[in-house]
Write a protein that binds this DNA or RNA. Sequence first.
RNA 1: GCGCCUCUAGCUCAAUGGCAGAGCAACGGACUCUUAAUCCGCAGGUUCUGGGUUCGAAUCCCAGGGGGCGCACCA
Length: 488
Amino acid sequence: MSDVPYRFDRTDEAASLQTRFAELGAGEETGLSTSVAGRLMLSRPQGKLTFAELRDSSGAIQLFAGSAFTARYDEFSRLSLGDWVGATGEVVRTRRGELSVKLREWVLLAKARRGFGDKWRGITDPDVRYRQRYVDLWANEPSRRVFALRSRTVSRIRAILELRGFVEVETPVLQLVPGGADARPFVTHHNTLDMDLYLRIAPELYLKRLVVGGMERVFEMARVFRNEGLSRRHNPEFTMLELYQAYADYNDMMVLVEELVSSLARELRGTTSLTYGGRPLDLSPPWRRASLSELVEEHIGVAVDIDTPVPQLAAIAADHGVPVSASWGAGKLLLEIYEKTTEAELWGPVFVCDYPKEVSPLARDHRSRPGLVERFEPIVAGRELGNAFSELVDADEQRARFEEQAARRAAGDTEATMVVDEDYLRALEYGLPPAAGLGIGIDRLVMLLGDVANIRDVIAFPTLRPESGLPGDGAQPGGAGEAEQPDR
RNA sequence: GCGCCUCUAGCUCAAUGGCAGAGCAACGGACUCUUAAUCCGCAGGUUCUGGGUUCGAAUCCCAGGGGGCGCACCA
């Protein structure tokens, strides 16, 4: 049975003491008693005096112990780095000027039985940092900062959206028909119903069902799952903000993105003039708006458009080393040319507008440009931060788009992953008002705000290969085991 | 999935074909104002794993595993 207490009465956090007694002079005592708690980060026993740094989630404060005034002094001076301690004593500032708790009573709250890293250099091995985030968090201040930033980012987004009348909702993670994005889903199985279900790749189609139901402004912070490769910018599960606003179009979404992102920068970083990876980034609105074909033309010096004949587009693709498939129409060719030649060159912020209809099965036709849809992607710090469009509201048109995707899939186009969602079509038949929708990758947004290069640094427990030699390594989960899967 | 790089003490790193080392942490000791305290002492190894070459391998070669970066897929 453990001999550590069940609770501890803390009266103050380290940071609030630091603030409150900032003016206390060196060598002065306050006569005020305080109780603090946290983890011992450094300990400097020096004979009959010991100076230790206690860190809690707010900051750090020194514990000043002495054999003359501290209970169980010898034991205290032998504590290990990493031990959790509850400490009570008088708030003083030492002769050398460090605000301290002059330790009277203390209690061990948890023993750190495993060794700590180098107290100066910390833990830098990325493998340890990601697998044992608890180690990373106590050892590395930047890591603590990033997760605090993530929390504040999500919190501010909620506040901003709620202020604008958006309602937060939750929609199914387990879906019968995975939809709303071009991505391969994870498959799982429901035992009682004896059927496969998919982990959602996007909440989009359910959120729009809610708009059909009369919820005019909805949003969800949705964990989504995509069965794709891992990289510095991709984790198989990630968090997406999706929102839908009735009576709005994609122009309204551009304004919303500008305001949302720039105010987050202002509130969380104090300025809209950031740097990312050492390169300046000015987020103050308005952001440039340019059509996709216009941007491609800027970068390759050749005029292209959705009306450009397919053979000509294929030739341009070939000129730039863009591999193409014979089944592609002008829209897919145009998108591929953009992605391979132009996208990586953009730094932004810029709204890349008016995508080909062929590659946008859920977006509404452009009001004046046949073959295009009213869709944009905000490019910020050289990467796609999100995706938005005026929503396709017509049920018959949506059915045709779904069927075209399904046909391409049947024809062997592995990139067309969308299937016909009959229930969604039925919902549209009840009437979806004009609406615009927006998706923003929260992980990437936090990377942007925190000047972080790797998505694993903004996800507390990123997906990793199994570690060898630990429970779970090679073990099979219980149940029916590997059932036969029909080809998909 | 493919390519390149990488893996040495608890942590951070040396040792480039010839006795596996240092700093920090741990452990023992000294020290009544420290700030990565200082000083003395002591201990610490499947050099990721398995093969191979060699008189001799942390080092060279092959295979496997983890990680990083890039590509592909994608947001």
